[in-house]
């Protein structure tokens, strides 16, 4: 049964991904982005519009990888978060209110990525459970305040195996061993990959992206 779950999972995610990209609107207009391409991006802790307290750092701890691999310098997210807290900014809301001028002086970033998490966690039904992560981001040029890019992602992953008997036994146990925050945390990796890498909707490649692999 575990094998079935392992093969079902990626396909469910793939279908969701397909629906996402299939239903996507026209390609993003990168005019502003190409006019002020950043070398470095400051990713501030996300606004958490969910009821799950784990969303903030579950999400933040998966955001550096895709953006750095896209070729940008990404400031150390935990260091930035803790330094801001030490300097009188205890919440993501307050951090995201810091002026671009101050960010320029103190951090020296070319662009800031403001993110919001709108869904995070797992829903448990009788025969199955679904984990969802939804987030949106806005990339702003520090010098001019121009919005360079916006994007959003909504990813869900189901764990129904399709076998009635096994599910009746499996779901409570799954619930016991898989805390919903951990499942959603793992799903953030995929969600961020989709958010930043989807063709015509994600980030353009940055200065550190290998030249021989540029799409």
């Amino acid at each position: 049964m575990k094998r079935l779950i392992d093969t079902t999972l990626p396909w469910l995610a793939l279908i969701t991904l397909g629906l996402l990209t299939g239903c996507a609107s026209k390609p993003y207009d990168y005019t502003n982005y190409r006019a002020c391409p950043p070398r470095s991006i400051l990713v501030l802790p996300p606004l958490n519009n969910t009821t799950d307290m784990g969303a903030t750092y579950g999400y933040l701890s998966t955001v550096s990888f895709p953006i750095a691999e896209r070729g940008y310098y990404v400031f150390p997210v935990a260091v930035v978060d803790q330094v801001m807290k030490e300097n009188g900014l205890p919440t993501a809301g307050e951090m995201q209110q810091v002026s671009l001028q101050k960010i320029h002086e103190i951090i020296g970033a070319n662009a800031v990525l403001y993110t919001t998490i709108t869904q995070y966690g797992s829903k448990y039904q009788v025969l199955s459970s679904t984990t969802m992560v939804a987030a949106e981001g806005r990339l702003v040029d520090v010098k001019t305040g121009t919005v360079l890019w916006v994007g959003k992602v909504n990813l869900s992953q189901g764990t129904s195996s399709g076998n009635l008997l096994v599910d009746l036994v499996a779901t409570p146990f799954e619930q016991a061993i898989n805390q919903s925050t951990d499942q959603a945390h793992g799903l953030c990796v995929g969600a961020n990959a989709v958010l930043f890498n989807t063709k015509d909707h994600g980030l353009l490649t940055g200065p550190y992206f290998p030249q021989d692999q540029k799409p």
Partner: peptide, 22 residues
């Protein structure tokens, strides 16, 4: 699973290689 999906997303996005820069 997330990395699998991430790798898939990279492939769908037309990127060539699953190797990472870092």
């Amino acid at each position: 699973t997330g990395r699998w999906l991430g790798g898939l997303a990279l492939l769908l996005a037309g990127c060539q290689s699953p190797k990472t820069i870092y």
